[in-house]
Simulated scan of single mutants.
Amino acid sequence: MDSLDPRTRPVRKVFTTRAGGVSPSPYDSFNLGDHVGDDPDHVAANRARLAGIIGLDPSRVVYMEQIHSNTVTVIDQPPTDGGPIEATDALVTTQRELALAVLVADCVPVLLSDTDAGVIAAVHAGRMGARNGIMKKTVETMVGLGATPINIHALMGAAASGKHYEVPEQMARDVEAKLPGSLTRTTKGTTGLDIRAGLLRQLLALGVQMIDSDPRCTIEDEDFFSYRRQGTTGRQAGVIWLPEVV
């Protein structure tokens, strides 16, 4: 069978970088965020390009109005108005050829799948969402739809690393109390947060053992958008979907 046959690749997970789009500086160039001040026509062109690359109609790629919450939303179809799913930071679906997208510029994008159960999720795990249990709630929601933690694969994308994510000590200790394993020290010797490390420990505690993580730091790697490095900037995406079985 062909290596792209859905029977050999039952789920697709991709992450974008900042390269390959049409947006000018400071959103150069593959900005997918429509809430950061970029020209809406440029964002629409970039989103259409992404959809074309992954082989789906743009209307089948669903985005979120991310608010750093711990709200999880189950969907079975795209919004009829073509807009984002309102006020949520995780999307879960069992529908095929419905792509779930998470936008980030330092926060952790997490793509989850249980292909045996046919359940997938895209999670925006920023500091507050991760602290307040967005990952735990997403896994629990997937289990409610038939997933089993031991069968869930988690893929974490590039994000702010602990060696550069500097925060006040009180803030770091508050996050550590809710997300153990996230407290760290930066290369400057100051208090920092490693959200991916905390999420890794939490996923393991939830019974999720198949975990992969891109180690790259968005703050130091200029291939990625970084709010901490740039302030005004674009957003890259993590996208997950179940292809149609042929």
Rank of each mutant, 00 (worst) to 15 (best):
residue 18 R to L: 09
residue 42 H to P: 00
residue 159 A to G: 03
residue 176 E to L: 04
residue 141 T to L: 04
residue 18 R to G: 00
residue 41 D to M: 10
residue 67 I to F: 09
residue 188 K to A: 15
residue 48 A to V: 02
residue 227 Y to P: 00
residue 95 Q to A: 15
residue 37 G to F: 10
residue 188 K to C: 01
residue 172 A to E: 08
residue 118 G to T: 03
residue 1 M to C: 09
residue 134 I to L: 11
residue 98 L to N: 06
residue 56 L to V: 09
residue 125 A to C: 15
residue 143 V to S: 07
residue 239 V to T: 02
residue 175 V to Q: 11
residue 142 M to C: 10
residue 94 T to D: 03
residue 115 T to W: 06
residue 227 Y to A: 10
residue 127 R to T: 10
residue 19 A to I: 01
residue 5 D to Y: 03
residue 72 V to Q: 10
residue 195 I to E: 00
residue 197 A to G: 07
residue 224 F to Q: 01
residue 233 T to G: 03
residue 187 T to E: 15
residue 15 F to S: 00
residue 27 Y to T: 03
residue 114 D to C: 05
residue 166 E to T: 09
residue 5 D to E: 11
residue 66 Q to R: 09
residue 69 S to Y: 10
residue 27 Y to P: 01
residue 217 C to S: 15
residue 11 V to Y: 08
residue 92 V to D: 05
residue 179 L to V: 02
residue 166 E to W: 09
residue 77 Q to R: 15
residue 125 A to R: 11
residue 57 D to N: 14
residue 22 V to I: 13
residue 171 M to E: 15
residue 51 A to M: 08
residue 72 V to C: 11
residue 50 L to Y: 05
residue 182 S to I: 08
residue 21 G to D: 06
residue 236 Q to W: 02
residue 127 R to P: 00
residue 71 T to F: 07
residue 41 D to Y: 05
residue 69 S to T: 14
residue 68 H to A: 15
residue 177 A to W: 07
residue 243 P to V: 03
residue 104 V to P: 00
residue 167 V to Y: 10
residue 145 L to K: 11
residue 150 I to W: 06
residue 218 T to L: 05
residue 106 D to A: 04
residue 245 V to T: 14
residue 42 H to Q: 14
residue 231 G to R: 09
residue 196 R to M: 03
residue 79 P to A: 14
residue 7 R to T: 14
residue 145 L to M: 11
residue 51 A to K: 08
residue 49 R to M: 14
residue 123 V to H: 02
residue 73 T to S: 13
residue 13 K to W: 02
residue 143 V to R: 14
residue 188 K to F: 10
residue 92 V to W: 04
residue 233 T to P: 02
residue 82 G to R: 07
residue 54 I to F: 00
residue 30 F to P: 03
residue 6 P to Y: 05
residue 47 R to C: 04
residue 204 L to W: 09
residue 26 P to A: 12
residue 82 G to C: 06
residue 156 M to C: 08
residue 173 R to T: 14
residue 140 E to N: 12
residue 9 R to C: 10
residue 120 I to P: 00
residue 222 E to K: 12
residue 72 V to G: 08
residue 152 I to G: 05
residue 212 D to V: 03
residue 87 A to S: 12
residue 46 N to L: 04
residue 87 A to L: 12
residue 212 D to T: 13
residue 71 T to V: 14
residue 25 S to G: 02
residue 113 S to C: 15
residue 237 A to H: 05
residue 63 Y to A: 12
residue 9 R to L: 13
residue 152 I to K: 07
residue 224 F to H: 05
residue 64 M to Y: 06
residue 100 L to A: 01
residue 171 M to H: 13
residue 122 A to H: 02
residue 12 R to I: 08
residue 24 P to T: 10
residue 180 P to F: 07
residue 193 L to F: 07
residue 195 I to R: 00
residue 164 H to S: 13
residue 180 P to D: 10
residue 237 A to R: 07
residue 242 L to I: 13
residue 185 R to N: 10
residue 44 A to F: 01
residue 102 V to C: 09
residue 138 T to Q: 13
residue 80 T to L: 14
residue 232 T to M: 13
residue 153 H to R: 15
residue 126 G to W: 01
residue 236 Q to R: 02
residue 71 T to D: 06
residue 19 A to H: 11
residue 31 N to T: 12
residue 135 M to P: 06
residue 138 T to L: 14
residue 25 S to A: 15
residue 218 T to N: 06
residue 131 R to V: 02
residue 143 V to K: 14
residue 6 P to V: 04
